[in-house]
């Protein structure tokens, strides 16, 4: 279970990229630093398929980066399985696996199996266990037997699946994907989504960050929409979609 309590995140003055809204600071002499998240309280139960939507700059990516301690809250706290994330980063990062936008920038190794093994190797597991995990993770994304292939020769959809396998090899209870469909064509998008549905069916919690809601509401248990760093909508997908009218997200075609 992932839980945020009154989570507020303010970027340092030098990090103010994009256009998050600025807020007057308590100290009048300090430069106003942009607020990315304000008072977000959210609980993600185990096994839930959550779609997290919102426009660019709404704070989606910032929010999920708190789930495993990649960012530290300015105020508020984040708990994974009731433990504060900062107390045991290794536990948080193994329980919450993360796949980033532009996977091809995030690979560590040149070949598939070597890259998928990177996480388990960092945990110091023995070779037999690492091999078992790599095999299982690759099988889960339909890449079994392709461990020796070079990653840069794979298609975009295959690269995305290898990135998912890299996160799965940590055997997380939640898998967070930040805009996984960027740059994928329709068939690759469909295949990645199908694998996510399978993982969800087998019990892995999925947090899917996207600004494009086509097809993703059907498997989702819940839809959360962020606007200006705060939760604007939170509920069952069908009910939540009705609240979308004024929000800048791409609406599903069937609605």
């Amino acid at each position: 279970m992932i839980e945020t309590r009154d989570l507020t995140h303010r970027y340092g003055p030098s990090e103010g990229r994009g256009e998050p809204e600025t807020e007057s600071s308590a100290d009048p002499d300090a430069p106003a630093s942009p607020v990315a998240l304000r008072d977000v309280s959210l609980t993600v139960p185990d096994g839930e398929f959550l779609v997290l939507a919102g426009a660019n700059g709404s704070g989606k990516s910032t929010l999920v980066r708190h789930f495993n301690g990649l960012l530290t809250p300015t105020t508020g706290e984040v708990l994974v399985d009731d433990d504060p994330v900062g107390d045991d980063l290794v536990a948080a990062r193994t329980r919450v696996g993360m796949v980033f936008q532009e996977p091809r920038d995030c690979f560590v190794a040149a070949t598939v199996a070597r890259d998928v093994a990177f996480g388990p190797e960092n945990l110091g597991l023995d070779r037999a266990e690492i091999d078992r995990r790599v095999e299982r993770a690759l099988a889960a994304v339909n890449m079994a037997g392709r461990g020796d292939e070079r990653i840069d020769r794979l298609s975009g959809g295959e690269q995305e699946r290898v990135a998912v396998a890299g996160a799965l090899a940590m055997e997380p209870s939640h898998l967070v994907l930040d805009e996984p469909f960027t740059g994928l064509d329709e068939s690759a998008r469909a295949s990645v989504l199908a694998h996510l549905r399978d993982l969800h069916r087998e019990g892995t919690g999925i947090v899917l960050v996207t600004h494009d809601l086509r097809d993703v509401l059907d498997p989702a248990d819940r839809l959360v929409i962020l606007a200006d760093g705060a939760v604007a909508v939170d509920g069952a997908p069908d009910a939540a979609v009705d609240a979308l009218a004024d929000l800048p997200v791409r609406r599903p075609e069937r609605c």
């Binding site: 980066r65 495993n68 990649l70 290794v90 990062r93 193994t94 696996g97 993360m98 980033f100 936008q101 532009e102 920038d105 995030c106 560590v108 990177f118 996480g119 960092n122 945990l123 110091g124 890299g166 996160a167 940590m170």
Partner: peptide, 12 residues
Amino acid sequence: RLAVALRARCLS
């Protein structure tokens, strides 16, 4: 981006 991904995968 790569550095963040390394940390997410428990670079140790």
